[in-house]
Amino acid sequence: MIGNTKKWIGMAGAISVLAGQFLVTPASFAGGDKAIEEGKKISFDRKKGNCLACHNIIGAPSPGNIAPALVAMKSRFPNKEDLHKQIWDATEKNPESAMPPFGKHGILSEADFEKVVEYIWTL
C-alpha cells in the first residue's frame, strides 16, 4: 500500500511538471491543425513569411510569379526535412537562388519557422 502511494505521488508529480510546462511556456509545440493554421497566417503575413510575394498558393490573394507555385509539396519534398532545408537557406541547393534564407538569417523565429514548414508541407 505504501509503495503504491509512492508510485502515485511520483506519477502525479511527473504529470504536473509536464502540465506546468504547458502553463508556463507558450504553446510552441501546439502541433497538428493549430500549428498548420498558425503557419498559414505567418506565411501570408507580409512582415513575416510573405510567401505570396513570390509564390502562388491556390486560393490566395494577389500572389507574385517569381518562384514556382506552392503545390504538390509532398511529392516535391517527400522528406519533410528537405523542405525544412529549402526554407532555411535555399542558396545551399542553388547558389543563385533569390529566396531569402528564412531560417539561417532569423527572418522568422524558430517557432514560427517550424509552423511555416508544417503549413507549406500540407500544400
Binding site: G13, V17, G20
Partner: peptide
C-alpha cells in the same frame, strides 16, 4: 494532501526552470 502538494511542487519547479 500529498497528491495536491506534489502537484503544486511540480508546477512551481517547472516555472522556476523556465524562468
Amino acid at each position: 494532501l500529498l497528491l495536491i502538494f506534489s502537484l503544486l511542487i511540480g508546477i512551481l519547479c517547472s516555472g522556476i526552470a523556465t524562468t
